[in-house]
């Protein structure tokens, strides 16, 4: 029981991170119907910016932990969003209306580029960060097992909840959200109605990158190690989460993220750690085959 609870907490934490990344996939897919293959790399860049920012702060001796985290979050979101914007501007915008596979191939190129760009510039070795947030709460204690909820896990889950609420309001209430939903329905019509489609798409990428940056900061704090390869794995899992939840749906992305996180945690706990990634991919394939619209997605009727 205690073990189960502990794994559930770990799974939810992990799932929150996947969910944040998955939103980026789902929004971009919703609006321009492409898989932004490079999104995992954006998240990885967020994590690297966080590592650098934390290291700088440590060199200047800023000891106030909440302040440090806020500064790092702000820095990471700003710089990572710039990457998100540029990726769309360079690799995807010129290809709107090109042949079917072109944007996807370009996205794969972008992913390879960013991964190796970071490897070349920042080194291939794993970056270990000194723990920033330590300690936690003990929820339950039995003779041989203690269920702990660390402060960092609380931070991750709270941040994710706050961001999700804020984000849902943004999409539901603001002019940007309206423009975005309009573009999702029909790009051409939205353009004819005077919506600046280019700007809306750019902003979608910026927002997605911002969320990925937050996820990157969180994962840096959580695991304390970062390398150039984390984006690939996390990207795949977040994409699986987006598909599981129903691609195009924001709550779906979050739900999918949580489920993938839980599956991974429990699989690792009760079956084999080695094959936990296999479980994620198997879920992805099964969902795509048996329920391609995901849990919360709308069915799309083939236009003939």
């Amino acid at each position: 029981m205690e073990y189960f609870l502990q794994q559930a907490i770990n799974g939810i934490t992990l799932g929150a991170i996947y969910g944040l990344v998955a939103i980026g996939y789902t929004m971009v897919y919703g609006i321009i119907g492409m898989i932004n293959f490079a999104h995992g790399e954006i998240y990885m860049i967020g994590a690297f910016v966080a590592v650098i920012a934390f290291s700088i702060l440590a060199m200047f001796g800023i000891a106030n932990v909440p302040l440090a985290i806020l500064i790092v979050l702000a820095v990471a979101v700003i710089f990572t969003s710039a990457y998100g914007w540029t990726v769309e501007r360079i690799a995807y915008r010129p290809l709107r209306g090109s042949f079917r596979l072109a944007p996807l191939i370009s996205a794969i190129g972008m992913s390879i580029f960013l991964q190796n760009y970071v490897q070349v510039l920042q080194g291939a070795r794993v970056k270990p960060l000194q723990p920033v947030v330590t300690g936690g709460l003990t929820i339950m204690r039995s003779d041989h097992f203690t269920v702990a909820l660390s402060y960092i896990q609380i931070l991750i889950i709270l941040t994710t909840v706050v961001l999700m609420i804020g984000f849902s309001l943004l999409i539901a209430r603001t002019a940007l959200g309206r423009a975005q939903r309009a573009c999702e329905q029909d790009l051409t019509m939205a353009a004819l109605l005077g919506i600046n489609v280019d700007r809306t798409i750019s902003l979608t990428f910026v927002l997605g990158a911002g969320l990925a940056a937050v996820a990157g900061v969180m994962v840096t704090l959580y695991y304390g190690v970062v390398d150039f390869y984390i984006g690939f794995q996390a990207g795949l899992k977040a994409f699986a989460a987006a598909v599981l939840g129903g691609i195009g749906s924001l709550p779906g992305a979050m739900l999918g993220g949580l489920l993938i996180g839980l599956v991974e945690a429990f699989w690792a706990a009760y079956f084999t750690v080695e094959y936990k990634d296999l479980a994620t991919f198997a879920i992805l394939i099964l969902v795509l085959i048996f329920r391609p619209t995901g849990l919360l997605g709308r069915p799309d009727v083939e236009k003939v």
Partner: peptide
């Protein structure tokens, strides 16, 4: 834009010195 992009990833890098990252 290039300046903004390059600043953190090109301009700064971390080196592991005895378990502590130095920028």
């Amino acid at each position: 834009v290039a300046l903004v992009l390059a600043m953190p990833m090109v301009g700064l890098y971390t080196v592991d010195e005895g378990g502590v990252l130095v920028v």
